[in-house]
Design a protein around this nucleic acid. Sequence first.
DNA 1: TATGAATGAGTTTTCATTCAT
DNA 2: AATGAATGAAAACTCATTCAT
Lengths: 203, 203, 203, 203
Amino acid sequence: MAEANEREQKNEQRKQQIIEGSIAVLKEKGVAASSMNDFIKSSGLSKGGVYHHFKSKEDLLIGVLNYFFEQHVTDISEATIHDLNAYEQMRHFLTEREEILERVGELNQLMMDFFAHATTIESIRQQFELQYCHFQDYIALVIQKGIDNGEFKSSVDPYAIATGFMGVFDGICSALVVAPDRVKFPNYAVETALAILDGIRQQ
Amino acid sequence: MAEANEREQKNEQRKQQIIEGSIAVLKEKGVAASSMNDFIKSSGLSKGGVYHHFKSKEDLLIGVLNYFFEQHVTDISEATIHDLNAYEQMRHFLTEREEILERVGELNQLMMDFFAHATTIESIRQQFELQYCHFQDYIALVIQKGIDNGEFKSSVDPYAIATGFMGVFDGICSALVVAPDRVKFPNYAVETALAILDGIRQQ
Amino acid sequence: MAEANEREQKNEQRKQQIIEGSIAVLKEKGVAASSMNDFIKSSGLSKGGVYHHFKSKEDLLIGVLNYFFEQHVTDISEATIHDLNAYEQMRHFLTEREEILERVGELNQLMMDFFAHATTIESIRQQFELQYCHFQDYIALVIQKGIDNGEFKSSVDPYAIATGFMGVFDGICSALVVAPDRVKFPNYAVETALAILDGIRQQ
Amino acid sequence: MAEANEREQKNEQRKQQIIEGSIAVLKEKGVAASSMNDFIKSSGLSKGGVYHHFKSKEDLLIGVLNYFFEQHVTDISEATIHDLNAYEQMRHFLTEREEILERVGELNQLMMDFFAHATTIESIRQQFELQYCHFQDYIALVIQKGIDNGEFKSSVDPYAIATGFMGVFDGICSALVVAPDRVKFPNYAVETALAILDGIRQQ
DNA sequence: TATGAATGAGTTTTCATTCAT
DNA sequence: AATGAATGAAAACTCATTCAT
């Protein structure tokens, strides 16, 4: 029993080792240009060794993505402060937790790259969808609360604004890849997001 | 002289023929999965024939992208109505020209796909950057006009809002790929964009 | 001593367990497409476990073949009835023991498959040769008896006819794989074999 | 037009060149053990060159098989002499055309090997089936003629005997692989086949 | 005895590109 | 201008076998 546990732990370590090597490769070369051989070289293991832990390239890529979500995307609901009203809650999220936003920006290039493969690799799309819905639901909920409180206009569709809110960040991150000199992240995103909040506020 | 002209025209026609075939392939298979052979088959020409007109795959891809921008991205400045103030101008753009937005949505999947390769293929990135800057400058200009008019708050950074504005559309289009059931396009984008406008307005 | 015996018995059981699993795999996938991993999975043991009992794939394959011959190929001499003359003996074998023939047909596909590897793997060829000679000797003996009795023509070469006799069965079994709709087994084989017997009979 | 023809001829030559190299490899290594790389090396072309002419290993293998059938399996109906009755016709075929039989024996090892893959590769099975049916029909026809003539017993099933007839050759060829010291080919096959003919004759 | 992580040469196939015609 | 045969590096993946535990 104890042995089995030890082995499993070692396996997990190995997997992590492979994933971390792969991330380094992916950051350098991009998803499309990274080959299994690259991941294998970076892992320090042999071909068979890597394939022992991940049964295909897709499998490894999903492993990387999961690791990413686990490590880097802090659960937004952790940032909730229950005393605040909806508006303050959102503001707080935008202005006080800037570290999160900055980290998002750093990882952005790789994320966008993965993201683009959501089109081609269904299982990657599903991973993204899961994360996306989670966020979308949470933000829509906060906005709904704001509507119920009378903070936001009753004409607001909480899902539209939640989607737009997230879109600002995703879209600006995309732009960062295309025209890094023209886009200041997260500043521009925060300013736009605050404008959205002001725009839906009840005067 | 006349002959030379005729020849050039035929050349242009051939190029277009190749590009149009390639677009059909790209829409069906995606950028990463489309091979030169696929483009060649769809062109009706031979290998050598296609390579005569485009010296590499990258070259052809850029040709496709240019054709795309020329054909499908209506120059935003055409939509300008000079009698309107900045706020009305933006509103008009969002609510009266919905056909444009819808077309953007349709092309989005392929664009996102191309976009992914902005990371890897520098020349593709440059094409996107050119287009991006063009739009960004134009929108920032309109917003600046609104600030000067006193329509918008003086604290507004026109480039931040222009960037956010575009980001909403790009970001929501991305989301469309990931979670099509959760995103209504262009509705959500328009509602968010209008909220931004309301948010930066001088009360 | 007793312990040593118990151990050996357990070993034999393990080997049999591995072989039976392997046969199931071989029937489903064919010899060429079956991997050591498949055999290991089907055995319920681990990699090391199987390799402990069979030192290589070839070794396991030979084990399977032996098991096969032991289990399924009833010793033809058991079917001998000593009161009968040679002609009746052969007839009896063909017409009264049809169950055997049918079983042969069922196993045929796998046998043919193994057989193909007789070319490549010398040790498999040797196993087949052993079995083949055993049968050939026995049938040739019966025919020789018939010649001595005056039942069969004295011009007959007993080994030629014995070989041909077996060939009819093997050949028709092969044909069964290639053109199952065109071959009725064992009917066609029995009819041909009876014709051979009639053909060598002294009128 | 002339050019197109020349090109096609050259293509055919290339294909033949690849096939002939492949046959040499197959004779030496066997079907199962021969890799595409081996065929490529033996062809003198590059990887892509071979794949230009044969789109997969299976495709090449079928090419080899066809070439074989075309080159080596003389159409049995060519051997027909119309003045002879059925019995003499069959005898003639067995005793006068021994060169054919001997050549069959020589090629036998490779054929058996291919044959074994009829189980695994459907397209190879189909090629064999085609050839098989062709022969079977022809022989059954001759036997039917003999029955109609009163040469053969009316109780004879022509397809059973035709199948058995072919089986003798196929079966003995198999035996040749397994126990070459115990099998004389084509002698044993001819003697058995003649016995079959005698066995179905009307006394 | 038994486990399963690890090895690495090997497999088939793809594909952007070149070049003689 | 156009053809298509040829190149060869690289791709993803397999698999019999070994060995530390």
